[in-house]
């Protein structure tokens, strides 16, 4: 068995007295105490009053949500790749065909139901990564609460509410089709 011999430091007699270390320790704690009291130490955010909202980076991985494009088209085409990749199987999609009289009939497919069970979601972001349509993004929404299991399931409406409109993405369905 591999062993590592750790050499025990040989203490001087005054070190053995314990008091110098004690006084040193008190010195350290006093320094921290004073710094905290004078506000020189950064302490925890006071959460419900202060929120993360403004401090979160754009790439923060909060609740996954669906987005629409500039023309309010729902970007999701219900390819179900996110449902497939989702490690905790939080996503359930029911696809449907877009009616032929719809403005976006050429896209052919969209989700009828898109549900993300936020109890299951682990915010891994694989859905965003796998999405070939740039339709699902992890947004800054992080305080997800509910009083029942059913409330914790985000349906399509809620997902678009969180996701909102997203511009500057590839709009492949709009071009020349």
């Amino acid at each position: 068995m591999a062993t590592i011999v750790v050499k025990r430091p040989k203490l001087k007699w005054w070190e053995k007295l314990y008091l110098p270390a004690l006084i040193g320790g008190i010195g350290v704690t006093i320094r921290h105490f004073v710094r905290t009291l004078t506000g020189r130490t950064k302490v925890t955010m006071q959460y419900p009053e202060e929120k993360w909202n403004d401090h979160l980076p754009e790439w923060y991985r909060g609740a996954p949500a669906l987005v629409t494009d500039e023309q309010d088209r729902e970007r999701c085409v219900a390819c179900q790749l996110c449902e497939f990749i989702c490690p905790p199987r939080a996503i359930t999609i029911t696809p449907e065909e877009i009616a032929s009289d719809d403005k976006w009939a050429k896209v052919e497919k969209r989700p009828r139901e898109f549900e993300i069970d936020m109890i299951r979601c682990i915010y891994c972001g694989l859905c965003e990564e796998v999405c070939p349509e740039q339709a699902i993004f992890l947004r800054q929404e992080y305080a997800i609460t509910g009083t029942s299991r059913a409330e914790m399931v985000h349906d399509k409406k809620k997902l678009y509410e969180i996701g909102g409109k997203r511009v500057g993405l590839v709009n492949k369905w709009n071009a020349l089709k």
Partner: peptide, 13 residues
């Protein structure tokens, strides 16, 4: 409170 201040925390507030 004192322990919190020593440990760079806030403590019950």
């Amino acid at each position: 409170r004192v322990s919190a201040a020593i440990q760079d925390r806030v403590g019950p507030n």
